[in-house]
Write a protein that binds this DNA or RNA. Sequence first.
DNA 1: GGACCCTCA
Length: 696
Amino acid sequence: MSMFWKPGTEKPQLLDDEEGGVLFLSSSQSSSSSSRYGYASMGKQRLPVHKYRTEILYLVETHATTIIVGETGSGKTTQIPQYLKEAGWADGGRAIACTQPRRLAVQAVASRVAEEMGVKLGDEVGYTIRFEDITNTSVTMIKFLTDGVLLREMMDDPLLTKYSVIMVDEAHERSISTDILLGLLKKIQRRRPDLRLIISSATIDAKSISAFFQPSKRHRGLEGQGLSPRKEPAILSVEGRGFDVRIHYVEEPIADYVRASVSTVMLIHEQEPPGDILVFLTGQDDIDAAAQLITEEARTVVKNSSGLIVLPLYSGISRAEQELVFSPTPRGKRKVVISTNIAETSVTLEGVVYVVDSGFSKQRFYNPIPDIENLVVAPISKASARQRAGRAGRVRPGKCYRLYTEEYFVNEMSAEGIPEIQRSILVSCVIQLKALGIDNILGFDWPASPSPDAMIRALEVLYSLGVLDSDAKLTSPVGFQVAEIPLDPMVSKIILSSNQLGCSEEIITIAAVLSVQSIWFSSRGAQKELDEAKLRFAAAEGDHVTFLNVYKGFLQSGKSSQWCHKNFINYQAMKKVMEIREQLRKTAKKLGMVLKSCDNDMEVVRKAITTGFFANACRLEAYSHNGMYKTLRGSQEVFIHPSSVLFRVNPKWVLYYSLVSTDRRYMRNVITIDPSWLTEIAPHFYHHQGPNPATH
DNA sequence: GGACCCTCA
C-alpha cells in the first residue's frame, strides 16, 4: 500500500514559479524526445498521467472526492475516464461522466477518446452538448458533456443516478455553471455514498476546492462505517507536458501597453529565432491598433519585414480570418497573432514560441446596488498569467515577455481571478436552482458565495416577471414553464406571453436571434457598407422587428449563403438561429403552446416583448441633443448603441434588450413602445410611479 | 457621430 499517496502522509507536489522566473518545470520532462512534437503522434502511454493510473484508481475507490491537480497536456481528461471504465466503474449499466465548460472541448475530447479506444463515437464513448446528443443510453459508458447540459439533466434526474463517477474538468476556471454544479454535487454526495467525484483543477486553486469538499462536522459522524469511502477529499498532482517557458519582466512599469507590446514584438522578430508570437491584449480596439502599428513598423523600420504575418484574433472575426489564424505558418514566415483572452483557454494555437502578456483583460463586473453591469479593462490574476505563459511552451521551449515588473507579479497580482458568479447578474442562476428544488438560495453551500445583494436583485426580477411568488417559490405554471425553456428568464417569458398574443412564431424567431452574438457580418473597414445593408431591413419599430425582416428575407432566398454575403449577414449565425428556433418551437409545443403567426401586426410583437422587458423602459430626455435617455426605473443615463437601427433616430419611448457599459451605457437591441403598455402590462412594477409614466 | 472580453442551455 505504501506506493499510494495518501492524504496526510506526503504533501502533493504543487508547482510554483513565484521564486524563480521559469514556469512549468516538471520533474519528468525529457524535452529531447522528438515525438513530443504534435499531439497525434504521441503514444498515450507517454502521457504524464499514465504513471499515476493505479494511484488515481485507488484514490477514487477510497475517497468520495478526488482532486486532480494537473497542467494542460497531462492527459487527465482523455485518460482518466478510460482508466475508470477499465476498472469497472461503467459496469452494470452505469456511466462515467466528464464535464467541460465549452462545447468545442466536449466534441474534441470525446472523438479523441473514441479514437483511442477504437470505438465508434456515440457507442461506448459519446457526448452531449446543446443540439447534439451523440450517445446511446444502453451502450454509452463514457459520456462527455458541458456542465450546462449536466445541470439540465438534473432537472429530470436530481441525483444523477445513472452516473457512478462524475469528473468535473477545468474547475479552476470557475464558470457559473461549474460553481453551481460543484455546489449541487456536494449535496448529492450525502444522498449517494456510491457516487465518486473527480474535480480537475490547475495548481493554485486546488486547496480552496478541497476545503469546499471537506465534510462539515455534522456529517463527519457517518465516517468509517461499512464500505463507504472517506469523506475528506484526496489531492493528487500530475505534471504537465509543456516545455520550459522562460519569463522576462520589464524593469520599470510601462505606461502604454499597446505601444510596449508593439515594440516587444519587433524586438522578438529582429533578435529571436523562428517561431510564432502570441500577444495578449484586451479588446478589438487595442488589437486593431497594435496590428496596424506592427504592420506599419514592419514596413518602414525592419529589414526582413516580409516575413511577418500580423493577424487579429477575437470572437468576432470572420471565417476567412479564422482560417488564416489557425493555418500553419508558411515556411520562412513568422506569424504574430494579437488576441483577446480567447487564446488563453478557448482556442489553442500551434507553433507559438513567444508570448507577450500585457497583464490586462476585459472583465465583466456587476454592481447590484445600482444594478449596473460594466465591462472594464482590469489586471489579470497570477493564474491567468501562468496560463498565458504556458501557451509559449506547447511545441518547444519558449519565452514569455510580461509587460509588468516581477515585483508587481510577486507582490501585487492576485492569485486567482474573481469567480464569475461574484461578477454576474444571477437571474438565470437563481431560477435554475429554484427549478432544482433549492428553496433557500441564500443559504446554499457555494464554492464561492455570490453577494446577497445580487441574489436579492435576481429574486426581485423573477418576482416582477411572475416567475416567483411572494414566498419566492416557482409559480405554476408560468415559473415552471420559464425554467423549462433554455433561455434567460426574460426571453422565456416573452415566448410564453406570445402564446396569448398570437405571435409565437415571430417571438420565437426574435428569441433565437437574440441568442446569437450578432447576425450582421462584422468586417473592419466596411462599416459603411454594413450600415447601408442594414437600412434595407431596418424597421421603424426597432431592432427586433428588423430581425424579423432579415429572417423573412433569408427564408425567401432559400436560406442562401450568397444572399447573406450580399446583404452583410452572417450565414453561420443564421444557421444557428434556425437551429435554436427549432429547439424553441419543440420546447414550446411540449409546454402545450399552439404556435401562431400574427403576420404583419407588429404591435402585438412589441407588446409581447414588453411583458418580459418592461423593466428596461427608457424615455428620451426632453431637451437632449445628444440622444440621452433615462431609464424609468433607476433614472440612469443611457444611449442607443451605434449598432441599433434606431441609432440617431431617437424615438421618445424605447425598451432595450441589454445594456453594455463602456465609457457610456449603451442600449443594445432597442424597440419603440407605447408607454401606456407599461402600466397595462406591469402595473405592479410601475404602480408607485403613478398611473401612467407618460404623464411626467 | 460611433461600438462589441468570453462562455452555456
